[in-house]
């Protein structure tokens, strides 16, 4: 076993997902198969590979950080479910 149900529960918590017992046992089983397949990557010697060295050709494409106003402010919130006085309402976070 590469992974245990407790680990799946813990990962779900990190990922902000609530899983049923059935889902936990299903994902445990599936991840076991998947991680077994992924084990192939351990067989390559990549000790000397430096992922922090970029090719000369690769350059960042940055633009000036110029703030601009979005034309229609209301449109920006058109997908928000609860809006009050132009602010998004969420449950109280401080007592």
């Amino acid at each position: 076993m590469k992974i245990k149900p407790e680990e799946v529960k813990y990962i779900a918590k990190l990922a902000k997902l609530n899983l049923s017992e059935n889902e936990i046992s299903q994902y445990t089983r599936e991840f076991d198969d998947i991680l077994e397949h992924f084990a192939v990557i351990a067989s390559y010697d990549v000790e000397k590979v430096d992922v922090n060295v970029f090719d000369e050709k690769q350059t960042s494409s940055l633009r000036e950080d110029d703030p601009t106003l979005f034309g229609d402010q209301e449109k920006l919130y058109q997908n928000t479910k609860t809006l009050k006085n132009g602010l998004i309402q969420v449950p109280k976070i401080l007592e």
Partner: peptide, 19 residues
């Protein structure tokens, strides 16, 4: 929100990535 609205495969990938 996430538990109700994401499908099985999306949850699977999110968890695999989180792992």
């Amino acid at each position: 929100s996430r538990s109700e609205a994401f499908g099985q495969e999306v949850k699977r990938r999110i968890m695999l990535g989180t792992y």
